[in-house]
């Protein structure tokens, strides 16, 4: 093909691409996704025998500031924002419905000098999902050089047998251990060779930049991203039920353990802050009669740790408990400002 035609064809392609992108940026009114599009759950970590698993996002082993708590900390704190806010390297340590008396002792093992703990009524209630608690208690082996997958298979087999021994249904156990295998693959990817970690880091950074520059769509949560409005009252009944079922004596015991863990962190010279993350009013109204915020205030006060009360701050949630992604970004800037003012 003559060189002139080639140049023309290449120009046609470049012009078409530029026109499509310009039209998309100018005309497309794609609502931003409700969830952070790139943030994975992170690798699995254990605080000790039968204490875990929790998830670690970012370089927890070398982070300067560590955000600790349940899924709301995972969803509401955008690490990229914190990174640009000048606190050094941020990381998150979280667990679904994290039981803080288990999670907080793990924090002491990491060198971060600043710790931000997200408190909620779930911090005082034990994990309500017995399947999760039973199946994941044994930490997986460190990945071996030749056969990380084989180690994972053995570990999965043991978890499945343990589940079956507790009387779990065979199909449920199989489905659950398949999820475990997925979580473990991710765990090994994070904990394994530096090449895999580098791949993941680069992919997440590139995706984050792309998502900031271009409104992106995803066919997978298609409906959620495009057609579903946030539903701030969705978890209100569930949370109220959970709060009503929690026993005061257990909460008091958990509160005591959290106080001691926070005090130990302070005694170690760490800057510790507790924060009540934003929630929808419907959720707060349902929980307050059973687990009043005063219980959480008392924990922070007893440990001598400042408490940032953002529970009623005007940030939009997608389900009453977790912020939407755009709101999480906005809130992260707000939180960064509050932390900077506190530590100035």
């Amino acid at each position: 093909m003559p060189r002139a035609s080639l140049t023309q064809a290449a120009s046609t392609g470049a012009a078409t691409f530029a026109a499509l992108l310009a039209a998309w940026l100018g005309l497309a009114d794609v609502p931003p996704p409700l969830l952070h599009p790139n943030q994975s759950d992170g690798r699995l970590v254990w605080a000790g025998p039968e204490k875990g698993p929790f998830h670690a996002i970012g370089p927890v082993e070398s982070a300067d500031i560590l955000f600790v708590g349940d899924s709301r900390v995972h969803d509401d704190v955008v690490l990229e924002v914190m990174r640009s806010a000048g606190f050094g390297t941020p990381a998150t340590l979280w667990g679904p419905g994290a039981y803080l008396p288990d999670l907080l002792p793990l924090v002491g093992a990491y060198p971060a000098r600043a710790i931000v703990v997200g408190l909620s009524f779930l911090s005082l209630a034990e994990n309500p999902n017995p399947l999760v608690a039973a199946a994941l208690r044994e930490a997986p082996p460190p990945p071996s050089r030749l056969a990380a997958a084989a180690d994972a298979a053995r570990w999965r087999q043991r978890q499945e047998r343990a589940l079956l021994a507790t009387g779990a249904d065979r199909a449920a156990a199989a489905a659950f251990t398949a999820d475990l295998a997925e979580a473990l693959a991710l765990h090994y990817e994070h904990a394994g060779s530096w090449t895999h970690r580098l791949d993941r880091e680069l992919a997440e950074r590139a995706d984050y930049r792309r998502t900031r520059a271009v409104p992106t769509v995803s066919p997978r949560p298609w409906r959620r991203a495009w057609f579903e409005a946030p539903e701030p009252t969705r978890l209100a009944r569930w949370a109220a039920g959970l709060a009503a079922a929690s026993r005061p004596d257990r909460r008091a015991r958990a509160a005591g353990e959290i106080e001691r863990a926070l005090a130990a962190l302070r005694a170690d010279g760490r800057r510790v802050v507790c924060v009540l993350l934003p929630t929808d009013e419907s959720l707060r109204t349902g929980v307050a009669p059973h687990v009043p915020d005063d219980e959480l205030r008392a924990v922070a006060a007893a440990a001598g740790v400042p408490l940032l009360e953002h529970q009623a701050a005007p940030f939009g949630t997608r389900d009453g408990s977790h912020l939407t992604w755009p709101e999480a970004e906005r809130y992260s800037h707000f939180l960064a400002g509050e932390l900077a003012a506190l530590w100035r």
């Binding site: 080639l6 046609t12 499509l20 992106t216």
Partner: peptide, 19 residues
């Protein structure tokens, strides 16, 4: 060649906007 170029541009555009 021009049709192929437009096709390539469309695919690159979708690569940019589909998550």
């Amino acid at each position: 060649a021009h049709e192929r170029a437009v096709g390539a541009a469309l695919m690159l555009f979708l690569l940019a906007v589909v998550r």
